[in-house]
């Protein structure tokens, strides 16, 4: 699978951008938290596309955001 570039994403419509990013993001989120991957990916897709692209290339920031989303999710459910 070729990497998703900023220009590829910029050429797409806003809702297509999120879809493209989501397809790349989901497998990465699934590796971190398989049970909540669908929900967490949906939450992360609310973030700016430019920031999401950086997260796709940075496992550390992706991890941090997944943890953040999990905390929000748990607080919401409590």
């Amino acid at each position: 699978q070729e990497p998703l570039t900023a220009s590829m994403v910029a050429a797409a419509l806003p809702h297509e951008q999120k879809q493209m990013i989501g397809e790349r993001l989901y497998p990465l989120v699934y590796e971190i938290h398989s049970q909540l991957a669908n929900k967490i990916t949906g939450m992360l897709l609310e973030i700016d596309s430019s920031e999401l692209l950086l997260m796709l290339e940075s496992p550390e920031s992706l991890h941090a955001k997944v943890e953040e989303a999990l905390a929000v999710l748990q607080a919401h459910q409590a």
């Binding site: 989501g22 609310e46 919401h76």
Partner: peptide, 22 residues
């Protein structure tokens, strides 16, 4: 009430509906 609109889940291969309300 003032319920938080929760981002919908993302499922691979399924169009994500998250931005429809923005």
């Amino acid at each position: 009430g003032s319920s938080i609109s929760w981002p919908p889940e993302f499922h691979p291969g399924v169009p994500w509906k998250g931005l429809q309300n923005i």
